[in-house]
Design a protein around this nucleic acid. Sequence first.
RNA 1: GCCAAUUUAGCUCAGCUGGUAGAGCAGCUCAUUCGUAAUGAGCAGGCCGCCGGUUCAAGUCCGGCAAUUGGCUCCA
Length: 640
Amino acid sequence: MNITFPDGIVRQFEAGSSGMDIAKSISEGLARVALGIYVNGVPYDLSRPITDDATIRIVTFNDDDGKQIFWHSSAHLMAEALESLYPGIKFGIGPPIENGFYYDVDFPNGKKLSIEDLPAIEAKMKELVKQNSQFERVEIAWEDAVAFFTEKGDEYKLELLEGFKGSEITLYKQGEFTDLCRGTHVPSTGALKFPKLLSVAGAYWRGDEKRKQLTRIYGIAFPKKEMLEEFLHQREEAERRDHRKLGKELELFMISPLIGGGLPVWLPNGTIVRRKLEEFIKSELLKRGYVEVITPHIGNLNLYRTSGHYPYYSESQFAPIVVEDEEYLLKPMNCPHHHQIYSNKPHSYKDLPVRLAEFGTVYRYEQSGELSGLARVRGFTQDDAHIYCTHEQLKDELINAIELTQLVFTTFGMEVKTRLSFRDPDNPEKYAGSSEMWDMAEKEILEVAEMMKLDYFIGIGEAAFYGPKFDFIVRDAIGRKWQLGTVQVDYVMPDRFELEYTGADNQKHRPVIIHRAPFGSMERFMSILIEHYAGNFPFWIAPVQVSVLPISDDQKEYASALVAKLEALNYRVKYDDRSEKIQRKIAESEQKKIPFALVIGKREAENGQVSLREHGVGDKGAMSIEDVLTMFSQLNSIIN
RNA sequence: GCCAAUUUAGCUCAGCUGGUAGAGCAGCUCAUUCGUAAUGAGCAGGCCGCCGGUUCAAGUCCGGCAAUUGGCUCCA
């Protein structure tokens, strides 16, 4: 048979040759690290015979596909260890994930697993690695599979089998353990050299809150020790950057149980950063024809009935407040308020687009277990705006809004992924508006994405109830993904609020609304920003921009004059005139992550200079005060 | 909300099988006037998350509650 390699070369192999045979024919080295083979795009075990002409690709741990095979096999390895330690244990599903794998299990006799139990399981896994048992693929009739798992008493596997009725079933066996599995797996457990179990969590069977909660055990594994060490080191680094830790250390924000979980309070340092971010956005808005408005924190429930938010999202809102027989809602979004501003007066097509912007604080009910620092909260401020435009203006306005969002992310050097969030066609009841309107809006979004050459992917079922959107997604220090900015198309609200403008034809028309928020929420953006910079904020947003450090009391007069000068220029200065050694003052300036320290000794005071020290870099030598001021002014010029 | 873990001084953390609380840093006072990451001495600081129980005795054991953390579910 003819086997085509990824580089296009075709070679002859005997029919029935396995992936391992092919790997060996290339090199012993490849055969040692090969984990699986893709045959015409379908993953095969290396031992599985290939019978016909095929295009193949051998995968190793360096390929994402290879990692998935590796971690999938690791999940089976963990399952084998669990079964030998806890006989009678039942298994749910055990897939590979982005970073490792998990297995959902149901322990016998109500055993509660805690992280203290993990080392023993890990030790057992290592023992099984040494045994180096082969992963064996068994093709079996559906009825026989049912019989097998009935005998074993594993109701979860039986439930899974119900879904595969009629099709051919495969089992995988290694050592004493047999699992229902599509595959593919590594040749033997010996490959899974360095496993590490990471955490224990509860997870509902089939993700259904109403069903039994199983124990989910997360783990990861690597073929080389250095890889595991690197992975663990990265986790530590992520922990070091965690915005909750840095937020406390740098006094950026706090959460008080007495105020309430999920209701973060911005401390003076954090407030400076936030205000700088707001100034930055405001200066961009003014350049782009937005006007600012201010709306209250609560609104009559009828407003949200009109918008449709109330029935659609009543579960994620705080309960209504009743006063004088009227019901009010803590506002879960700003849009309906802005729509009222739009309809406050009649509009001509000549007025459009109307762009209303507000840093609007909204309140949403989140389950207590979901709250997390600044990233997931119950009250937050959106850098919100609504653009009311004609249909002809829509694409230009979308582009304008997306460009602003991109400017934000490039200014901070963040990597984002763009998701085109479309409706879920299987759940039409989740969305307002006609199917034709959705088709049109999704098409327009796609066209804009293509025109702007965005690097996007499509998220089915991620749309808002009133329309599809662009979402910008960023990862935090520990790899969790968060949606930040968003740009949304809305044909529904104009109808619900009967928004109008008079066209050139003297007829009434419906405007289109764009909802957009480049930061998303100030809180979440701040959480990502802290982690992105590891607390080392750039000069223009740093809570304290520069520390002034006289070496001895003799330089105090010179130093305090410099401090006054800097403060007069609106720089944020920390003057450290304590009778401490200069080393100490520098250490503290560095710990507080202040971008620059100006060290002043006898020499500088005599020459009208300062000795400049850059945070994280070190001593940059003596400079004139004028040069320092010029440099600071340049660094500050992002806001203009 | 559910599963698991955690909660001791402002912060980070120690406190073994129950015998009445400890360190470092921060703070305050004094001395020191110093050239690029921590000068020394002294002082002060605690409803050991909250409520209840067991016990002669609870930071420690048991129960409940709360908050936080890792997940699940959900997410405009």
